[in-house]
């Protein structure tokens, strides 16, 4: 665990991995990728941090309370977006019929609620991976 090379490389490389994951999540509807793959990349960056710096440092960086908020918040955000459709007179999780901002195809901000849902899924998958890893290695 106390390896200077591993720690330095991790500290240098983790921000770039996280930016790449956020890029994949935000461009999920116009290029290959999406919430699940981008969230996996984001979670893997935090797992790399845990592996090189130890569990206590990672828990200080990203406490369990925060990941718990992301986990439940992802699903609640998803269901609320679906309920917006009902309130505006459509069916559950309807997109174009109830007048979400559609924009021009190919832009980052377009496609109604697709980027919002993708962001929710990405955060949820990332926090799920981190929590699973932390919980499973905690027992030792």
């Amino acid at each position: 665990m106390d390896n200077l090379i591993v720690k330095t490389i991790t500290r240098l490389i983790v921000p770039f991995i996280q930016i790449y994951g956020i890029f994949i999540i935000l461009h999920g509807h116009i290029s290959p990728g999406g919430g699940f793959s981008g969230g996996a990349v984001l979670g893997a960056s935090m797992i790399l941090y845990t592996l090189s710096y130890g569990l206590t440092a990672a828990n200080k960086k990203l406490p369990h309370k925060v990941t718990g908020v992301f986990e439940s918040g992802g699903i609640i955000w998803y269901v609320l977006l679906g309920l917006v459709g009902i309130f505006l007179g459509g069916s559950f999780l309807s997109n174009k019929e109830v007048g979400f901002f559609m924009g021009k195809a190919g832009d980052v901000i377009s496609g109604g609620f697709i980027p919002l849902i993708t962001a929710a899924i990405g955060l949820k998958v990332a926090s799920t991976m981190i929590t699973l890893f932390h919980t499973i290695i905690e027992e030792d």
Binding site: G28, H29, G82, S110, F113, T118, K124, T131, L132
Partner: peptide, 30 residues
Amino acid sequence: THAPNAIASIITDYRSFDTLGETTVLFTSI
């Protein structure tokens, strides 16, 4: 859906209820 990625438009628009169940599976596993 104004989204060029056909798979994203399927999993988050046409079949978004399926994806809601998928996230529920993740939540249940946690």
